[in-house]
Design a binder for these strands. Structure first.
Length: 989
DNA sequence: CTTTGCGGTCTTTTT
DNA sequence: GACCGCAAAG
């Protein structure tokens, strides 16, 4: 074996199912698993396996993720495992960035100008608004934009089918189409691609010139449930040569439906690649049992979902909290008080880094940010406002874009009067119109006018003309020229940073800021400085690890991307956020505030999910209620040890509007604590075990408590309304029918006045027994004494598994089957049987083993790889994923659900984990084991406290470049491929 | 024609 | 609390 990494090292620390997924020799592998089951870890290991063990060249492996953050993390992890910087050769990134890379290299084959720019959402909005005005279209610009984006995202296959179907449709349709057409025409003349175009054009490229990807051996996709139509096509096209695809996903975490993500793509894949090896990972290594239990109670309200097993590995932990507060402001204060309490009562075992506040909308952060700020707690905000969205940064970027692409009318129009040049809105609009109707670019109109070659129809004052010519056109032309010279032999280097600095001085940018933002010009100027250092970092990282390397393919000309500027601009457009440099500010612990969407794939020991009221989750404007529920599920399953949901009873817009508890939470509200848990020794001990940390001795903890510290969560009334009889009683009606075991909501005990409860209560943390660190090893089972490292523990399990006689492995571990449990059907089978018209779901293959399931789809499996057969198999109701909760039209299972709550017979899926409350958590199975692979990276402190930037380790955002042709032996891809696959380590019967 | 000041309107999620 | 449209002053 020519493996650089020994096999056992790749597989080290993986459980059986993960191992099977990693080593599977099937061409297509689908890994379906719930949160915290090590999906990404498994995918990473498979990449390493494919490279080091199977022998694919890294540059022949494509790994696509959905978000920039995921791509960064993936790259870092692969880098750690692979070493030698080989991760830089892998074609790894978001779908959009990979597509851009291919278009930059080969785009001219499909007639794409090499210097194409990327139109961001602001650009497209502006363009579409203008088009709607000019053509007097009777459509809302925003709606048109959404429609156009949907059209593109559908993918060509679906689009052509749809086109036939609704040929004659709504009256608005015509206008929409006109708008679409004009929009595309405009983008083309400005040499711009919008986000969707990147994918669409790449599909076109790979379809017409398959040789571009002829080297690709295998394709791996993370968060597959979020792919949309085009991305699905793109995936297949990348893999067109060898059809080797590995996907990882979880239908329950599909939260991008609004961006045209299609869960259906999962069925579609299984349909089109019938011999796909399905692997499910069932152990949850992240959360405590009680967190998992409650999360499942929430997600199971969706009766149409494909149910997967999810087995907690950890101990029970403390029950999640559902806290009711008076207002959003109180809620924020309460969060601060709980953060302080948790940290203090853990003796600083927990730090701010361990805490996340996850929001449905970024705008909800206002109160929370101000409370944290008042309390002096440092935080960072992920998602929401972005660094590059700041006005001053956008202006600078627009200047850079115009330097790069003079024909970018929108950018030019935006900067024409910034800094002020005495040119108003009206003039600019008129000039833009003139440019568009005359077929010239705005730049051309202006420069011709100023040179006297052609007089613009629009009147310009002498003053404006002068400033335009001297302050805009000339300097930019000048910069452009100097960039050109720099690439010559002896030219003085005029790098990106110099360019920006030059620009700043030519524009007197600091003065401009002072004039236009007298209040906060300092902050804004600081942002500009930050921007410069970002650019410097980018240039440096480009030198170090390179970017955008695509392997050479024989007989196919690549366009080399030489210039820094276009790459910088592309990086900005495609990166969701800036990575700030390592400017001073050591690793100060920061609380994370994030949108739920941006938190996917991450985990924290302590998670707050505020604003769980109707209108926030589910959001008022949300179209798909089930998706909103999944969103809540994603948020809840980020938590490892402590989970807090909360909601303000009264809306914050003054007029005493009442909120309603989220309907996803209300039915199970009784399963929550109504206030923060008492952090006594056992509770904190469990936290420590889950996190594998050392809990300081009690003396240290109490010694460190500030004076007058309140050890309980009783600063705020449990029922802020004082009325004892309202609450959530109304929601319990459905429970019996839906079969969810819900303890009756407990009436919150009436609390005394919030202030004076301290002395009276018996101090709950002062237990009779003291559990010291040493004694706490007794919590864990004898065979694995004390706190062990993950690696050691995994090794122990592995060893135990290897020796069949040894019984000390826990039940949980032993049952970590490598396949679906006996009563869990293939996900494809699930779809099939659900789509059957009157088939009682419960009887459908009640004990289908995988083999039978496989057989079941074999006959139909041989199908033309078109989407039509797949469509047939999908229950339309399901594919829409739009079924309302509780409207369970007389399902035959309803009856069986009702009776004795032993083990629910879910319609054709597995035994599923809502563990009855009676299950003992101390069966000795739960050693403190943790898979830390999905722990968020420690992040650097922001430059200042309240900046909303996300700091990630540097050097990971950029792609990679390698001197072409270096270090590559003359082994053709084909020969590589011929290498025998390693036989499976796990026997399959 | 541009700038400034005022009042009414809305507030998802991301590449 | 930020953004748009409108009216009046420079």
């Amino acid at each position: 074996m020519a493996s650089s990494t020994p096999k056992h090292a790749i597989l080290h620390g993986l459980n059986d199912a993960q191992r099977r997924a990693v080593t599977s020799d099937a061409a297509t592998v689908a890994i379906l698993a719930g949160p915290g089951s090590g999906k990404t870890h498994t995918l990473t290991a498979r990449v390493v396996w494919l490279v080091d063990h199977v022998g694919f060249r890294p540059e022949d492996v494509v790994v696509a993720t959905f978000t920039v953050k995921a791509a960064r993390e993936m790259k870092e992890r692969i880098g750690r495992a692979l070493g030698n910087g080989r991760e830089n050769k892998i074609v790894l990134g978001t779908f959009h960035s990979i597509a851009r890379r291919y278009l930059a290299a080969y785009g001219r084959h499909i007639g794409l100008d090499q210097k194409f720019g990327i139109a961001d959402s602001d650009d497209s909005r502006a363009i579409i608004t203008r088009i709607c005005k000019r053509f007097q279209l009777s459509v809302d610009a925003a709606a048109a934009r959404a429609w156009i984006s949907k059209q593109k995202a559908k993918g060509t296959e679906a689009a052509s089918a749809a086109a036939r179907k609704d040929a004659a449709k709504l009256p608005g349709q015509r206008d929409l189409e006109t708008c679409y057409r004009e929009y595309q025409r405009y983008l083309e003349t400005s040499n711009l691609l919008d986000y969707d175009d990147l994918l669409v054009r790449c599909v076109e490229l790979l379809r017409k010139f398959p040789s571009c990807v002829s080297n690709v051996q295998t394709v791996l996709i993370d968060e597959y449930q979020d792919t949309n139509g085009v991305q699905y096509e793109l995936m297949k096209l990348f893999a067109q040569r060898h059809q080797r695809i590995t996907i990882v996903g979880d239908p329950d975490q599909s939260i991008y439906g609004w961006r045209s993500a299609e869960i259906r793509n999962l069925w579609r894949l299984l349909q089109e690649f019938p011999s796909t090896d399905e692997v499910s990972l069932e152990e949850n290594y992240r959360s405590s049992q009680s967190i998992l239990h409650l999360s499942l109670l929430v997600i199971q309200q969706d009766k149409k979902r494909y149910q997967k097993a999810l087995k907690p590995v950890h101990n029970r932990g403390s029950r999640p909290v559902l806290r009711k507060l008076k207002s959003a402001a109180t809620e924020a204060e309460w969060i601060v008080s709980e953060i302080r309490r948790a940290i203090a009562m853990s003796g600083s075992m927990l730090t701010h880094n361990d805490i996340a506040i996850l929001l449905r909308s970024a705008s909800l952060s206002r109160h929370i940010e101000s409370s944290l700020g008042k309390a002096g707690i440092a935080y960072r905000m992920v998602g929401g406002f972005k660094f590059y969205d700041r006005a001053e940064i956008k202006t600078l970027l627009d200047y850079l874009r115009v330097i790069h692409q003079p024909e970018n009318n929108d950018a030019l129009a935006r900067i024409m009067n910034v800094p002020r040049r005495g040119i108003g809105e009206v003039t600019i609009k008129s000039l833009l119109e003139e440019a568009e109707t005359s077929g010239l670019s705005l730049w051309a109109v202006l420069s011709k006018h100023c040179r006297g070659e052609r007089t613009a129809k629009t009147k310009l004052t002498k003053h404006a003309e002068q400033r335009l010519s001297g302050g805009l056109l000339r300097p930019l032309t000048d910069i452009r020229r100097r960039v050109g010279e720099a690439s010559g032999p002896n030219g003085t280097p005029f790098g990106l940073v110099q360019m920006i600095e030059h620009l700043l001085s030519v524009l007197s940018f600091e003065k401009h800021l002072l004039a236009s933002h007298p209040d906060d010009h300092e902050q804004r100027w600081a942002n500009v400085q930050e921007f410069i250092s970002l650019a410097a970092d980018f240039v440096r990282d480009l030198d170090r690890s390179g970017d955008d390397f695509l392997p050479e393919i024989e007989g196919l000309q690549q366009t080399k991307e030489a210039e820094v500027l276009p790459r910088f601009l592309a990086n900005v457009s495609l990166a969701s956020d800036a990575q700030t440099g390592d400017d001073g500010q050591e690793n100060k612990p920061l609380v994370t505030i994030s949108t739920i969407h941006a938190a996917k794939g991450l985990e924290w020991p302590v998670v707050f999910v505020p604003a769980v009221y109707n209108g926030s989750i589910p959001h008022v404007r949300a179209e798909d209620g089930d998706e909103e529920r999944r969103l809540l599920y994603v948020a809840m399953t980020r938590a490892q040890c402590l989970l807090y949901l909360s909601w303000p009873v009264f809306g914050s817009n003054g007029n005493g509007e009442r909120n309603e508890l989220s309907p996803f939470v209300a039915p199970v509200s009784g399963s929550f604590l109504d206030k923060g848990p008492c952090f006594d020794r056992p509770v904190m001990g469990e936290v420590a075990r889950i996190l594998q940390r050392k809990l300081p001795p009690e003396s240290t903890i109490f010694g460190g408590l500030p004076a007058l510290f309140n050890p309980e969560d009783n600063l705020f009334p449990v029922d802020p309304e004082h009325s004892k009889q309202e609450a959530s009683a109304g929601f319990n009606g459905e429970d019996g029918r839906s079969g969810v075991v819900v303890p009756r909501a407990k009436r919150p005990r009436l609390q005394g006045p919030p202030t004076d409860q301290n002395g009276g209560d018996e101090a709950p943390w002062r237990r009779e027994y003291t559990t010291t660190m040493e004694q706490s090893s007794a919590f864990t089972i004898a065979s694995l004494p004390g706190f062990v490292s993950v690696g050691a523990h995994q090794a122990a399990i592995a060893a135990a598994n290897a020796a069949p006689g040894v019984t000390q492995t826990t039940d949980t571990v032993k049952r970590s089957t490598t396949r679906r449990p006996a009563d869990q059907k293939s996900i494809l089978g699930f779809v099939r049987s659900n789509s059957g018209p009157a088939r009682p779901a419960a009887t459908a293959l009640p004990s289908a083993r995988m083999d039978t399931a496989l057989q079941a789809r074999q006959p139909t499996g041989v199908q033309p790889p078109q989407c039509s057969p797949a469509k047939q198999a999908i229950d339309p109701a399901l594919s829409g994923h739009r079924l309302k909760t509780g409207k369970l039209l007389n399902r035959p299972t309803a009856a069986s659900d009702g009776d004795s709550g032993k083990r629910k017979q879910y319609a054709c899926f597995s035994s599923s984990p809502p563990r009855p409350a009676a299950v003992e958590d101390d069966t000795g199975t739960n050693t403190a084991e943790v898979e830390d692979d999905e722990r968020p990276e420690p992040t650097r402190a922001a430059a200042c406290l309240h900046v909303t930037t996300c700091n990630l380790p540097k050097g990971l955002g950029v792609g990679f470049r390698r001197p072409a042709g270096l270090g590559r032996e003359n082994i053709t891809p084909i020969e590589r491929l011929r290498k025998p696959f390693k036989p499976l380590t796990i026997s399959r019967s």
